[in-house]
Structure formats: structure tokens, C-alpha cells
Design a protein around this nucleic acid. Structure first.
Lengths: 133, 133
DNA sequence: CTTGACCCTATAGTGACTTCAGGGTGCATG
DNA sequence: CATGCACCCTGAAGTCACTATAGGGTCAAG
């Protein structure tokens, strides 16, 4: 399997695959006579794992750790749980932040009626003279 | 006012203030005999505006645009509305993504009971052999 | 024999900072 | 008067997770 095929098979760009190799996440594959990378099934599986983890929002460092844990089937599941739970907590923080933020913005949008900046509630809210934020 | 005071007054780090100056967001202030930056009230107000905008999640490019609009009180409020509405839409997309993601992770966490990796539902879900994701 | 899709490496760019290296300034204390 | 310390300066590099660019090589089809 060449790099383009691997990319299509996993929904990853060719550049990203080479990047993962440079980062040590994906082992360097064999090369053919033309110096093209030749991938095996194991590479496809590992890249799929990485892709899924990334899609779930894990950082590359977390992916590295998950791979390390997954590589030894005798490892405790607790490590995986800790990483996941921490990640969920992080998501919860982001959700709360974004929700608050959205409320703030929509409130401004709704009250913004004036035709000119001088009457704009959004600009007013951002300006330091206003004390209501 | 020196840079450290300005930073404390606005909740911005000294490095970030210098960065904003280099980016052209904050005008370069006068310097005293020791080559220290000396800020006026106008700087404090502008930096507060930037800080609030950033806290509301606007990108620096959006902040640039908001500043440009705010600088002329005769401008239409519509430009500000457009930027804000676009930003709200972006936030909605992120909220949806994060919520879906969280559901996925929590589902895995709840079902992860085995003491070893071999039985770990999270790893299983990430691994390409599983077909249920 | 040329076109086009694909592959290679090495390097730089993205956003919004943060950190580091290597210095200078200003004030209080010993 | 020396020393320490907090604060200030510049310029460059590092962060994250890629993405893009430049400049080339390979291969099969028409």
C-alpha cells in the first residue's frame, strides 16, 4: 500500500501521515525501489487508531500515551480511564466557556439596534467606558 | 504607566502586550529615558477592548476589524453585527462537535469495566478491529 | 514523448501567544 | 559603594498539529 492509498483508507492527508512518521507515532515503513513508502496492514490499523483518537479530540501526546497503553494488553484499563476522564473534564470546561460566551454575544446582537457605531451595543460592551460587562 | 502596570490593569501579560504592539494592534507608546514604554489612558482603553474581545473568543483578525469599525463612530453597526453573528455560528458548530464528542467518550467510560487493556472498551473503540464506531 | 497523477525531501507558515538568552535600569539594603 | 532584586529591553526560537510551498523524481497511459 502506498501513502496515497493509506491516506484515502483512513481519511488522513499524505502530509499528515509523513508528519506522524516524523513524530514517531507511525513507524517508518519499508521503501520500494523508487523510494516510495510501502505500508502494511499494521500501519493501517495504527493510523486508524490515531485518526479515531484525534477525531475524539485527544491531543497527540494523549494519543501517544493511549498507543503505549494499548500496545500492552496486560496493562490496567485505569490509565486509559484517567486520560479519557481528564479529556471529558476538559471538554466540559470548553462547553461551559463557549455557552457563556455565546449567551454574551447573542445578548449583544439582540440589543444592537442603532444604525451607527455610536449606538452599537456590541462595541459599547467591548469598550472600557461601559461598566456593565 | 509602565508595561507591567498596564498588564496588571488589564489582565494581560507583558509579553502579550509587546506582541500586540508588534502586530500593530496597540500603538507604540512613548519611551522614557531608560527606553521603557510609557502608556497613556488611551492605551489602557484600547488594550481593554482587545482583551474583552479576545475573552469573547474573537480572533485577532476579528479584533482588528472590530477596532477599525469602532474607531469611526459614524460606521454602520451592521459590520459589527456580521462579525458577531459569524462568530456565534462558529461557536454553535464547536458546541455541537464537543457535545457529540463528549457523549462518545462518556459512553466508552461507562462501559469500560475490565481490569486490563484487553477488556478496555475505550481502546477497543479506538482499535480498527471494532466496527461499532 | 509528453502529460498527469503520484511520490520524495526540506523548509516555512499558521494563530496567538510563550519562553529563552542575554542584557540594562532603578531602588532599597548592608 | 556594592549587592540584590524586581522590573524593563530586544531578538529569536518554541508551542500545537498540522498545511503549504519549492523543487525535484517515478510511472503508466495516450
Amino acid at each position: 500500500m502506498k501513502i496515497g492509498e493509506l491516506g484515502r483508507a483512513t481519511g488522513t492527508s499524505v502530509e499528515t501521515i509523513r508528519f506522524y512518521e516524523a513524530e514517531g507515532l507511525l513507524p517508518a515503513p519499508a521503501r520500494n525501489a523508487a523510494n516510495y513508502r510501502v505500508y502494511e496492514l499494521a500501519h493501517l490499523e495504527r493510523l486508524s487508531f490515531i485518526k479515531r483518537s484525534r477525531d475524539l479530540g485527544f491531543t497527540l501526546d494523549q494519543v501517544r500515551e493511549l498507543l503505549r497503553l494499548a500496545d500492552d494488553p496486560g496493562n490496567s484499563c485505569a490509565g486509559v480511564d484517567v486520560i479519557t476522564a481528564r479529556h471529558v473534564a476538559e471538554i466540559d470546561r470548553k462547553l461551559a466557556d463557549l455557552t457563556a460566551l455565546r449567551g454574551e454575544l447573542v445578548r449583544r446582537l439582540d440589543s444592537c439596534q442603532g444604525p451607527i457605531i455610536a449606538d452599537c451595543r456590541i462595541i459599547e460592551a467591548l469598550s472600557p467606558k461601559s461598566r456593565d460587562v
